[in-house]
Design a protein around this nucleic acid. Sequence first.
DNA 1: ACCTGAACACCGTTCAAGT
DNA 2: ACCTGAACACCGTTCAAGT
Lengths: 228, 228
Amino acid sequence: MARPRKPLLSRERIVGAASALVDAEGLDAVSTRRLAAQLGVSGPSLYNHFRNKDEILDAVADAVSAKVDLSMFDESDPRDWRTALHDWAVSYRAALTEHPNIVPVLARGPGRRPAGLRVADAVFGAMVRAGWPPAQATRIGALMRYFITGSALGSFARGFVDDETAYDPGDYPHLGQAHLLADRQEEIDEGAFETGLRALLDGLTAQYPTAATAARAGGAGRSRADGP
Amino acid sequence: MARPRKPLLSRERIVGAASALVDAEGLDAVSTRRLAAQLGVSGPSLYNHFRNKDEILDAVADAVSAKVDLSMFDESDPRDWRTALHDWAVSYRAALTEHPNIVPVLARGPGRRPAGLRVADAVFGAMVRAGWPPAQATRIGALMRYFITGSALGSFARGFVDDETAYDPGDYPHLGQAHLLADRQEEIDEGAFETGLRALLDGLTAQYPTAATAARAGGAGRSRADGP
DNA sequence: ACCTGAACACCGTTCAAGT
DNA sequence: ACCTGAACACCGTTCAAGT
C-alpha cells in the first residue's frame, strides 16, 4: 500500500484500540502486532506515531488520568480541602477500577504524562490555597496517590482463593475464614478503601497547621526545598 | 548431558538467580533463557521446577515478603496495636524499597503466596487481639497494604524530570518547582510515607472502638461476614 | 509523511529423547 | 527424575523501499 493519501492511523486511534485491548484481555495481550492487526495495518506502522510500545501504554494510562474529575478543586471553598480531597480520591479510584489492567503502568509515576501532571498540579495548588505549607502539600499529593493506586492495584480480597483447604490453620492460625474473602472481593476492597480514606483525612485534619503552628513555622517563607 | 546424578537446579537456586537478575536489571530483563544461562542450564530445564515464568516471579516476590519483620506482633503488648502497626509498616516498606523492581509483582495480591499470607495472618491476628472487630481488622490489613505497596511502587518524585522547561506554567500553574523533585526523590517519598503513615494511624486511633461502641456493636458475636 | 514486507535478535513453552 | 536440543508460535524494533 505504501503511503495512503489520508493517514490510516493517528495517536488517538492507536490509544483507543490499545485501551480496548488492555481492558478486554489485559496488559500481556497487547503486542504491537496484534494491536496493528486490529487497526488494519502492519506492525511497524505504529512506529510512525509512537517511539515504542511503552509510549503507547503510557498514553493509555494517561487517558485514564484524564478522566479523573478535578472540578472539586476549583469550585469548592478553598478552606474545605478535606471534602475536595475526599471527592477527588473517590473519583480517582473509580476511574482506576474501571480500567484495572492499566493500573500497573499508571502507578509507575505521574511525572512524565500530561494528564497525570494535571492531577498533581490541581492537588498541590488546592492544598497550598487551603493553607498547607508547600512541602506538606507535596507530601499530601504523593501519599494520596500511594493509597489510591495501591488500592486499585492490589485488590486484597481478589488475591485469596475460594477454597477452604487452601489456608492451613497450622500455618495461618487466623485465616480460617480467608477463603470467604474471594466471594466478597468488591465489598471488602471498597470497605478497606473507605476506612483508609477516612483515617487518612482524619489524620491529616489533625496535622493541619493552626494559626499558632503556622506562625511558629513561618518567617522563612517558601523555600527552594518546598517543591514542586 | 541428560539427567545428572545430582540435580543441577533447585527451586531455591532458581529463585536466587532470578532475584539477583530482577534487582540488577529489572523485571523486563528476566527471560527464562537468560535465567537458565546464568544457572548453567538450558531454558527448558526450569520447567522441571516451576510451572511457568510467572510462578518464578511470584516466588521471588514471596521471598521479599518473607523478610518482613513480624516479631512486633508477638512481642509487644497486644493493646499497643498502633506501635506494632507502625513498626511493621516501616519494616515492610524497607523490605520493598530494597527490591523495588519486584514490587509490581508483589502488589498483585497476597492471597496465593505463603510468606504474603503469613504477613496477612499476623496483622489480622494482632488487630483482633488488640480489640478490633474482625471486619475492621480485615480492612486494616488491606488498607495498610494499599498504602505501603503504593508507596514502594509509585515513587512520586522519581516520576518527575529534572528539566526546568518540562513543566510549562501555562499547563501546570503550580508545578513551577517540579523539576526539583527529581533531585530529592528519596527524601520526598520518605517524607510522604511518614506523613501518610502517621495520618493513617492517627485516623485509625480515632476509629478504635471504645468500650461503649464495642458494647453497642456487640451481641451478635463474630459472624461469617467478618472474614478472613 | 506514512505505510509495507523482510529481517534480526529475541521470547515462553512443549515435547521427544536421553540417562 | 531431570536434563537436552529441536521446534512452534510468537515477540519488539529497524530499515530499505515504495508513494
